[in-house]
Amino acid sequence: MKIMPCPLNGPRNISEFACSGEVAEMPEPNRTGDEDWADFIWMSNNTAGVVREWWCHVPTNYWFIAERDTVTDEILKTYPAGKVFTARRDFQGRDEGP
């Protein structure tokens, strides 16, 4: 069983974690055409190489980001989600200007 280094709880058996796929920033929904939106929702890059993934430590429900090489299955580093998502996100309405 692999070990996942959790930024909050330290190294733990990976059975304590759930993976939620690649980190992808959501495009502005009301400024994105149908095709691009469908691509964002339903298509996955399935990158061979280093990807940033969402992981959750289940006993604490703690979300963080792991950089993992999907070819070697090596976990390169992990860090709190706040390192990537640094500021409050608000969404633009349909009628508002950009």
Binding site: W54, C56, V58, N61, W63, F85, T86, A87, R88, R89
Partner: peptide, 13 residues
């Protein structure tokens, strides 16, 4: 619950 925490990890409300 987990999904809510996940969204707010991104929105930071």
């Amino acid at each position: 619950y987990r999904t809510m925490l996940w969204w707010n990890a991104q929105w930071r409300l």
